[in-house]
């Protein structure tokens, strides 16, 4: 993406100039930033890429209407994907599995790790709802055979079943499996697999751009004092400490 290149070239240019730790004033910095030309269309594409990958269909449609940016994927397919994601997020894993299989039966047949994680999530939901017997039966019939096929799965299964041993899960060392974050993790794994099956990037580009910004600032910190961005939600420049 051209945007990355421009920003990095600019910053590396600064690096080269600094023999000892150089101080760059706010005025100089802003002048340099103003010299960097970023095309509006590129910014728009970045936003659209984020909306599509994260599955914000309505926002994507509105953004297309307002900015004229074309999404690189059929928006209708996003709806199906979001339904799957929502089903996992709300604990309806069985429903999610059926929807994935309708979308493309190859996904779960050729991705044992994802299939195991969905089944594991099903087990977690049974335990959460206090269906102990059903949970045990499910673990034995559906998950144990996967554990036999793969040592890693077996370990994860053992961890999950350990949830049953604690009456008060707040004291359970594997209690985090019951957190909403576990659902989100599984949901995002399914989301990524569906995207890959549709030949689409599984991660939006925006977060990697942010990561790159942080990395570049860290690099630059060693060589220069400059107005850095610390609050990423506002992207405000902070005056360099002198």
């Amino acid at each position: 993406m051209s945007l990355f290149g421009i920003v990095i070239r600019q910053l590396v240019g600064n690096q080269a100039m600094a023999t000892s730790k150089k101080v760059i004033t706010r005025a100089d910095w802003e002048k340099k930033l103003n010299d960097v030309k970023v095309k509006k269309e590129d910014m728009n594409k970045l936003v659209m890429n984020f909306l599509v990958t994260e599955g914000f269909v309505e926002a994507a449609e509105k953004f297309r209407f307002e900015s004229g940016t074309e999404p690189d994927i059929d928006l209708a397919t996003i709806t199906d994907r979001m339904e799957v994601k929502k089903a996992v997020q709300s604990g309806n894993v069985e429903d999610a599995i059926e929807k994935v299989n309708d979308l493309n039966p190859e996904i779960l047949d050729t991705n044992p790790q994802l299939f195991f994680h969905l089944q594991q999530q099903r087990l977690i939901e049974l335990i959460r709802n206090g269906k102990v017997e059903e949970a045990l039966e499910f673990a034995q019939e559906e998950l144990a055979p996967r554990g036999e096929e793969n040592q890693g799965f077996l370990e994860e299964l053992e961890r999950t079943v350990a949830l049953l041993a604690f009456e008060d899960v707040t004291n359970c060392p594997v209690g985090e499996l019951l957190d909403i974050s576990q659902r989100l993790k599984t949901a995002s794994e399914v989301n990524a697999a569906i995207l890959t099956s549709q030949s689409h990037e599984k991660d939006p580009k925006l977060p990697s751009l942010l990561k790159m910004l942080i990395w570049v600032q860290n690099q630059l910190d060693e060589k220069a004092t400059y107005p850095r961005i610390t609050d990423f939600s506002t992207a405000a420049l902070e005056d360099p400490a002198t």
Partner: peptide
């Protein structure tokens, strides 16, 4: 039919 499909996908056993 759909039940069968959903039971066997990903499940060798």
């Amino acid at each position: 039919l759909r039940d069968l499909k959903n039971q066997i996908i990903g499940n060798r056993t």
